[in-house]
């Protein structure tokens, strides 16, 4: 078994899925002869032919709509949107059709489709090629949003997404397409959707993240361990529907939670996790929930993108500060802290 990268794992899963089910077809821009701009669909055309591996016209609305039509016919189409920056044209189809075909026909028709797209920053890409807009998709009822964070999870989750009888948006963290390699057995084993993966056990704080940010989060956990802090690390995996059971169980154990997301803060997936912890886990928490996010700004062009993306050092620093704050909170025996004023915030900054 040789080590493969995340993009190779995506490719391996696509080959596997197409081999095992003749209903699986692939479509998208430049996915055929070219094998996809990132090579996710490499050699699919040679292996499975032009009928099952379709180069589409350059029209994202059409790609999404045709995918719905094919899926309603019982095919299992896997469509590629070349970059998440071009996914917005598919929203009408996702919101108004893919996510509700089963419901609006009372189960007569369904949409067993996967829409794949690379997302996120950090590869020095041009404008519109670096955003993390997963929360927009996670808000759509009836739609699954799945994000892998390693080659093994890319392989297993993509297989499960393709085999799933309902629509899945599968967002691939392109920053780590080739950054990490690991041994992945092509054994056809899917990984479960709708569930978190605990990547590292710990007892002092729960770090929750998804996609490429898990690299920094795991690094921060290493650093925290050196500082004597034992961090549990959770990979959310499926952002919608979200497995809060695992996150709440972890917080019940650690009493603290830090959510790390590359996406802007406002109304992000982290906001939902924090709200749910406030609803269900408030008495388990010994410190306020911490969010480390991208900013509520337009994604800067690549000369400055590293300032937008949370670093391992930042995560580590914020977590340590929050642990101190949490201890202070405990020491104060729940006396209300002084409200932060603009002046104190400026001083801290």
């Amino acid at each position: 078994m040789s080590k493969i990268t995340l993009i190779e794992a995506v490719n391996l899963a696509l080959h596997r899925a197409m081999r095992e089910d003749p209903n699986v077809v692939a479509l998208g821009e430049d996915i055929g002869t070219n094998g996809g701009v990132f090579r996710a669909t490499d050699k699919l055309r040679e292996r499975f032919g032009i009928k099952r591996v379709m180069d589409t016209p350059l029209a994202e609305t059409l790609i999404a709509g045709m995918t719905v039509g094919m899926a309603a016919q019982g095919l299992r189409p896997v469509a590629e949107i070349q970059f998440m920056g071009f996914i917005y044209a598919t929203f009408e189809q996702l919101v108004s059709h893919a996510s509700r075909m089963r419901n609006r026909t009372k189960g007569r028709l369904s949409c067993p489709m996967v829409l794949r797209a690379p997302y996120g920053g950090g590869i020095h890409a041009p404008e519109h090629h670096s955003e993390s807009m997963e929360a927009m998709l996670a808000h759509i009822p009836g739609l699954r949003v799945v994000i892998p964070s390693s080659p093994a999870r890319a392989y297993g989750l993509l297989l499960s997404a393709i085999r799933n009888p309902d629509p899945v948006v599968f967002l691939e963290p392109k920053r780590i397409y080739r950054a990490v390699a690991q041994e992945v057995a092509d054994d056809g084993q899917g990984l479960p959707l709708d569930t978190c993966f605990t990547l590292r056990e710990g007892k002092d704080i729960t770090l929750v993240s998804w996609g490429a940010m898990l690299q920094e989060t795991l690094q921060a956990a290493d650093g925290l361990a050196e500082a004597g802090v034992s961090a549990e690390v959770i990979d959310v995996g499926t952002l919608a529907p979200i497995d809060m059971f695992s996150i709440e169980a972890s917080v019940a154990k650690t009493g603290r939670c830090c959510i790390v997301q590359e996406a802007p803060r406002h109304v992000g997936v982290g906001a939902e996790i924090a709200a749910r912890l406030a609803e269900n886990s408030i008495f388990d928490l010994t410190a306020p929930v911490l969010r480390i996010c991208g900013y509520d700004t337009v994604m800067p062009y690549y000369r400055n993108e590293q300032h937008f993306l949370p670093s391992a050092a930042l995560i580590q620093q914020k977590v340590l500060a929050s642990l101190e704050q949490g201890s202070a909170w405990e020491d104060q025996q729940f006396e209300p802290a002084q409200p932060a004023t603009l002046a104190t915030v400026r001083k801290l900054a």
Binding site: R52, L62, A64, G65, M66, G69, A72, Q93
Partner: peptide
């Protein structure tokens, strides 16, 4: 289909399924 013209993309997809 209420959202205007969106069904035409589905129709192209169904027609593709027939072709496949």
């Amino acid at each position: 289909c209420v959202p205007i013209a969106t069904q035409l993309c589905h129709a192209a997809g169904v027609a593709t399924a027939f072709k496949v």
